[in-house]
Design a protein around this nucleic acid. Sequence first.
DNA 1: TGCTTCTCTTCGGGAAATGA
DNA 2: TCATTTCCCGAAGAGAAGCA
Length: 385
Amino acid sequence: MTRVAVSSDLLRWARERAGLPIEDLIGRFPKLAAWERGELSPTFNQLESFAKATHVPFGYLFLPEPPDLPMPIPDFRTLGNRQPGAVSPDLLDTIYAMQRRQAWLREERLDGDAEPLAFVGSARLSDDPGAVGREMRRLLGLGDGWTTRVRTWQEAVSALRAAIEEQGIIAVINGIVGNDTHRRLNVEEFRGFALTDDLAPLVFVNSADAKSAQMFTLAHELAHLWLGAEGAGLSGFPGIFPDGGRVETFCDRAAAEFLVPAAELRALWPQVKRDASPFESLASAFKVSPIVSGRRAMDLGLTDRAAFFDFYDAYVQREKRQKTQGVGGGSFYNNQNLRVGRLFALQVMRAAKEGRIGFKDAYDLTGLHGGTFQEYASRLGVDLP
DNA sequence: TGCTTCTCTTCGGGAAATGA
DNA sequence: TCATTTCCCGAAGAGAAGCA
């Protein structure tokens, strides 16, 4: 059998980049230690399997030395204002997949003589973020009190996502890489990102996060699209302790006004301020995290800092305790409306049906194959040949 | 002996339905 | 209203059989 001469440094780099200790791979690759010491070379098939296991493009393993992979986009929201260090393969693969979708949709819309979306890049950092938040709300057609008319956070996220798609924005909410349930996206690493483009803007939200937090991330990423190129270039920030730079602070403020308008909050405050947990009452009404509603109440001078930070500390501790509890179940095809994006999936399926795109490309863009792709198309009302 | 290929099983994601 | 269960898939892993 043919063995492949591969740099032991590259093998070690691939394994460490995937965050896998050698013990985790030794079962599948018993000679891995010898490969990394340069005492033995893997076969072609073994190297292919190794690339798959470490989520490294196969060709990278033939480079003379480990590549320096730059972050493909500058903005992404992280937890706790942490600056991103080494970027995980899961995040990188997610960004690359979203960039492929965006590039395809941009070409598709260019071919269809689509007009650029006027709201992309319509705001400036010198603008009032509150006014931008109100404009975002107006364009999406979300009237006063819309969140009180939906029952759950789940419905609120779905309604917001649908309103975003109506404006021609690809909105993807996913907690894993594609449909690979073995590759969960780490919310400690990022909460979401925006890919600005005036023909095919895209927002991505990490659904491993709490529903209430997803609402804020959606709104935050939306604000990035409003800033356009001016909003790119800085790292993400969760919005509680604002030192994440001008752009992040701007987007957080616009998102806060978008989700919790000052006028509505002031009107509601007298009714909830004597509740056992007023921030939770506000959160339930506006379908945002209690942290966001509490912070908003503090910024508007409705409550003092001590009350907010007491609540914040207790809430964070409670979230940590509850984090391990999860529920299973679900419907695969319903999930695709979030993972692929209903609007995007429909466009790809129509393009495949009309022969403007090959089925292989359609499979690649949606992450679905063969019968699964056909079944999802059928459920969306597209009859494929 | 070491490796490849194939088949079968297990895992785990989440919206919606159902039950308490 | 909240908790639990259902459904369906792709990916990964284990094991068996065969090959060099």
